[in-house]
Design a binder for these strands. Sequence first.
DNA 1: CCCCCATCTTGACAGTGTAAAGTTATTATA
DNA 2: TATAATAACTTTACACTGTCAAGATGGGGG
Lengths: 193, 193
Amino acid sequence: MSDTYHHGNLRQALIEAGIKIINDIGEDALSLRKVAAACGVSHAAPYAHFKDKTELIDAIKASVTEQFMKELEAAVSAAPDPEKAIINMGKSYVSFFLKNPDYYKFLFGRQNIVAHLKIDESRDDDYPPFILLKKTYLKYLKESGIKMNKKKQETGLLKIWASAHGLAAIACMSGVVPSFDWEKMLKGDELLK
Amino acid sequence: MSDTYHHGNLRQALIEAGIKIINDIGEDALSLRKVAAACGVSHAAPYAHFKDKTELIDAIKASVTEQFMKELEAAVSAAPDPEKAIINMGKSYVSFFLKNPDYYKFLFGRQNIVAHLKIDESRDDDYPPFILLKKTYLKYLKESGIKMNKKKQETGLLKIWASAHGLAAIACMSGVVPSFDWEKMLKGDELLK
DNA sequence: CCCCCATCTTGACAGTGTAAAGTTATTATA
DNA sequence: TATAATAACTTTACACTGTCAAGATGGGGG
């Protein structure tokens, strides 16, 4: 149980070294050998604690998720009532990853999407499905005669996109086909009318 | 312009071979050398068309995104009015990735999340933030005295989660901090009251 | 005290991305 | 048409990676 890992807590040290490398250089640069070297240990030493590279990575992910959970739980606890709890949790959920986008990319992916959320700003390199959504949404507002200020328009657009993208994420990542009522999503939402 | 790539269309052939490998074996198994071999070409040949491995991957992603866009545009075109267009597009957005989850993982990440969307089913290996959300949501329903059937409860839960997760995805991937009104999300939504 | 076994080291191997230099074929030019 | 230029491709080489097998080491239980 000493602080030096030599016959101590190499496993935990490897996890922490891995997190540090991801934050400093990025996930792509994370290699078993670098993690081992960062712990002052030979390149095959990790195999005493993890059968795979993926097993190390999974352990790192579990560690980051634990940290994520602590913040979410704090947000829920700080709320006076359940409604505020959900709101707080939603905020925390997003702000955690905003504080460290490296973690989001590490946990869920790497891709960098370009998209201008402002209604009247668009560029050619915006993510094409988003451009299409924006155009369709603006046409919807126009033809249905719905009047709202730009801010609200942008919130509505973001909500649709976030729901669609989040839904796709959940569906693919969980392997479950969620039943989702898009009609209700539009018609039952004050933001969109 | 012949159909054999020897001094022809190697670039396109590499992209297609890459897509095939991703579908057949998975993204992790995709290597420049395998792609080159699949085109019957030496392992350094791709460097005449792509400066990097990432440049090849980006080209593959662009190709998949193009295919994605075609389906979305078809969904929009098939709709009789803009409202239906948005609904259709939302459905298509999700169903495209459901049809080939490999593409979602390839474009946006790899992580497999476990989560049981059913209100009364839960397991220990469910994604912890989701477990917390479900508990908080159920408490919210109980304390606010809101009555709805299970189906509607599940839809509401899914909507909150998809919005939060999708929002985090968009925020981190676009690098833009979107302003989002969580209060309005809850209170302005028919699904949640 | 000694042996066991988890822990760690050493050495090896195939596979990877990428750079440099050489070869070939196509196209442009004169 | 002959030749020069250039894009496409090959060969060779190198550092780095994950993983395995075999050996060293050293601390705890018999």
